[in-house]
Amino acid sequence: MHLTPVGLEHYLMVSAVLFCLGALGVIMRRNLIVMYMSLELMLNAANLALVAFSRFNNSLNGQVMVFFIITVAAAEVAVGLALIVALYRKRQTAHVEDLTSMKL
C-alpha cells in the first residue's frame, strides 16, 4: 500500500468533507436539534482547518482562534437550546416544517 506522507492538504480535505457533511445535515434533516448538531459539525470542521494551518505555518494564532471559537460555540449552544426549549413550550414541536406562522 502506498500513501503519500500526511501533509496540510490531507487535513484540509478532511475538514472540507466534514463541513459538507454538516451542510448536508442542515439541508436534509428537519429536526431542529439534529440541525443544530450538524451546525456543530461545521464549526468543528473550521476548527480542524485552523489548527492544521497553525501547525504547518508555525504560528499559534490559529490555535488561539480555535480556543475562542470553542468558547463562543459553547455559549451559542446554550442560548440556542434554551430557545428551542422555549419554542417547544409554546408550540409543542421541534420540527421546522411545523413552524410556518410567518409564512404568507
Binding site: 496540510l8 492538504e9 489548527v51 504547518f56 490555535q63
Partner: peptide, 12 residues
C-alpha cells in the same frame, strides 16, 4: 498545492 514545502512545526 497549498501545503507544498511546509513542514509541521508549531507546538500547541
Amino acid at each position: 498545492g497549498v501545503g507544498a514545502g511546509l513542514q509541521p512545526q508549531a507546538e500547541g
